[in-house]
Amino acid sequence: AAAGALPWRTRDGRLQVALIHRPTYDDWSWPKGKLDPGEEWQVAAVREVWEETGLRVRLGIPLPDSEYKVAGASHRKHVRYWAAEITGGSGKLQHEVDAVAWLTPEAARKRLSYDRDREQLDALVKAHRNKALDVRPFAVVRHGKALPRRKWDKDDWLRPLEPRGYREAFGLVDVLRAYGIARLLSSSATRCADTLRPYAKAAKLPLDTTYALSEEGFEKRPKKAVAAMRKHMAGSRPGAICSHGPVLPDLLSALAGDARKPGRAVLKDAAKNNLEKGEVLIAQLDRRGHIVAVERIPPD
């Protein structure tokens, strides 16, 4: 399994994409590489772009997968791709690459060494044409596995994560970083705040909490949970919220109303069947606030 991305930018109003040249194979392709053991696809995609181009990126919409026969091997290689917006980095080449070329889509199509890589390019160009490429991620997180209610005799909102839940919380750090999450809002319950706290510390971000996203607050005033989510979504930087199983169906149903196909179907299914504990749902919002892509990332 491998993951990669199509770094993109605009210059003088024109779309450009970055291709890499690998001297070992003398080919031009997209930055990509194998997943490390236990690594999420999205995390691997961001890491590979950094290692091969020296560029820091934030993942955007998912692009078509690629599957092909590897020369001299009995298996087929499966690669997942994302569009990736540049957020930093020196551009200094670091790993098995001797050149990076920023090209228009037309020039990139000619330069690419493999027909299979043109499918991702076509999808990226189509998204740009439909104004669905310049997006802002918004993450919805269900808190990690918590201590069972029967084993806790204090107020329920103080109930902590159990060891598995803490592992899930630390597993979120690289995932949320891959999407450049820069604002955090949690239910005031301990198990929710502690799910986002490792990322808050790693990214040096404040962690805001609200009673509106808690089970107790939702039971009293359910509409306030959606209002709190929408207010947080309205910020210009990528955001994340963390809440509870009983609250999430209303939140996800509200998001489904903002979504285009096929993301709407994913959100409706999530609202109906809920997220797993520790799961992350990523919604990509265009400049008008419409959700143009949705991904679900299960816990480890």
Rank of each mutant, 00 (worst) to 15 (best):
K34I: 04
H232L: 02
A101Q: 10
K77G: 01
V292W: 13
S243D: 12
K223D: 15
A240C: 06
G165F: 04
V266A: 15
H143F: 09
R129T: 09
Q42F: 01
G91Q: 08
R183D: 14
A182W: 04
L147G: 03
P246T: 01
D122T: 02
D98E: 14
R288E: 15
L285F: 15
V79L: 04
V97P: 02
A270P: 02
T195C: 06
G239V: 11
S66F: 05
R136G: 01
H128L: 10
L19H: 00
K220T: 03
K32G: 12
N273R: 15
E67L: 05
E40C: 07
K231F: 02
K201N: 10
E219R: 15
L93N: 10
T53M: 09
K92R: 15
I297L: 12
K268M: 11
R111V: 00
T10A: 08
K268L: 15
E295D: 10
P64V: 07
M233G: 13
A101K: 08
S113N: 03
L172A: 02
R167Y: 00
D36M: 12
G278Q: 08
N130K: 13
K32E: 12
R118G: 03
P62V: 04
G13C: 07
A71M: 00
D153P: 01
G91K: 09
A256T: 04
A270Q: 13
Q94G: 15
R47G: 12
Y81N: 06
A203K: 05
P62E: 02
L281G: 04
D12V: 06
V135E: 10
E67W: 03
A283D: 07
L281S: 05
H290Y: 11
G4P: 09
R167M: 02
L252W: 12
A225D: 03
I282H: 05
Y166N: 00
V79F: 08
N130T: 00
A271C: 11
S186G: 12
P64G: 07
S243G: 09
